[in-house]
Amino acid sequence: MKNQNDRVLAEIALAAALAYILSFIKLDINQSYGISLSLIPIYFISMRRGFREGLLAGFVVGLIRIVSGNFVMLSILQVMIEYPFAFMCAGFTGLWSNKFQHQLQTPNDNVAIFTLGVATFVGTAVEYFVHFIAGVVYWGQYAPEGMNPVIFSLTANGASGLCTWLTGFVVLAIILKMNKRLFLVKL
């Protein structure tokens, strides 16, 4: 089809818009902490379309946040790292896209679900590694001398990264079981 490229662009744009909207819906763990659903559309578009597409979607989500004023600026470096770059890294999920698309054609869903789990885990890990770096930079600039910014950042980002991944993976696995065609690219 001739407009294949436009169609991919439009899908990335809508996935980014969805990711932005879902960042306002949170699942409660307790009063003070919630899991953001924002990564789910990025996982989704990465698995559906691929690595480059996932990176683009994540990058644009970061830009939407800056453009609409929903961002936290503490230093220039932190804003650059945390917004476009960190979200973009969730696109690493898309490295498994080809394999996943092939597995979806087979009758056994569990193989595809396993790939989905691995891919989303890696994507989240890369993203939260970047948040971790941003945390180190932040605490490096703001924590008093003699305090270790690495441990601070590691505990905070490690826990929320793991929760985010688990939620995203479980929700997408349920969706895959219910409606497999959603992930499949029709040609």
């Binding site: 744009a13 932005y20 683009l56 644009v60």
Partner: peptide
């Protein structure tokens, strides 16, 4: 491409 995606996304938010 990024600019186009961003403006479409903002339009659809």
């Amino acid at each position: 491409e990024i600019a186009l995606i961003l403006s479409i996304a903002l339009r659809f938010v």
